[in-house]
Computed example of a mutant assay.
Amino acid sequence: MSDTQSGQATSVSADAVTIRPMDRPGDLGWVIQTHGEVYAREYGWDASFEALVATIAADYAIGHDPRREAAWIAELEGRRVGCVFCVAGDTAGTAQLRVLLVDPAARGHALGTRLVDTCLDFARAAGYRRITLWTNDVLTSARRIYQAAGFTLVDEEQHHSFGHDLLGQNWARDL
């Protein structure tokens, strides 16, 4: 999901937009619920997508290494409106960007770009040499953000998930 899709952007000062660590009660629940609701509404995805996000959030909450993994919440005028996670990847020296989301009501404030930049900055500071992500081709606005941040498409594979036939994509970039 990204903030560059058409949405109900309003005029808001830069001071009203913040990116903060995901460290408050309710943050993880918000991530799970909002992903489920937004993706169901916008793409018709079923509850299995919300379950995937719940698994990612639970894995992070239970066992993340704060020196190597972090997550952030974007707030607009004090309300949660976006998120992203940076977690250790499957290979040494590789991080993974996970569950980027900007609530439709908050699109148009470059929050998706700011969240991705925050994730990349953290990954560099944590000593990662590469970062990867998995997405689906229907998420065109998110892909534009990833491409603008220097990610390149590594491979694609068709799959049936979340109640739909989809084209999954793996993207990566060096840090």
Rank of each mutant, 00 (worst) to 15 (best):
S48K: 13
G7V: 05
R114G: 14
E69Y: 01
D27M: 03
D137G: 01
R79Y: 07
S48M: 15
R129M: 04
R107G: 01
R107M: 06
Q158W: 14
A125G: 05
Y43W: 08
D46R: 12
L166K: 01
M1C: 11
A71T: 04
V116R: 02
L166F: 12
S48L: 15
R130D: 06
T140H: 15
I32H: 05
A125S: 13
S141A: 15
Y43S: 00
V99W: 14
W171N: 00
A123P: 02
W134Y: 03
L153I: 15
Y128P: 00
A95H: 11
D15R: 14
R124I: 10
S2W: 13
G163F: 15
R124M: 13
F49E: 09
Q169W: 04
R67E: 05
C119T: 10
V116H: 04
D137S: 05
D65L: 09
A47Q: 12
A126C: 08
D90I: 12
A148G: 02
A74L: 06
A61I: 04
Q147G: 02
V81F: 07
A125E: 14
P104H: 08
G108N: 13
G89N: 04
A105Q: 04
G112K: 07
L52I: 08
G93D: 02
A125K: 09
V31C: 13
F49W: 15
D137I: 03
A125P: 03
T118D: 12
Y39F: 15
Q169K: 02
D155Q: 10
Q5N: 05
G29R: 10
I62C: 03
W30I: 01
L166T: 04
M1I: 10
D117M: 12
I32G: 08
A57T: 03
G150Q: 09
T91F: 05
H159V: 09
W134T: 01
R24V: 00
M1H: 12
A106L: 09
W30M: 05
Q33F: 07
D121W: 12
N170M: 14
T140R: 15
D165A: 12
T10M: 15
L76D: 03
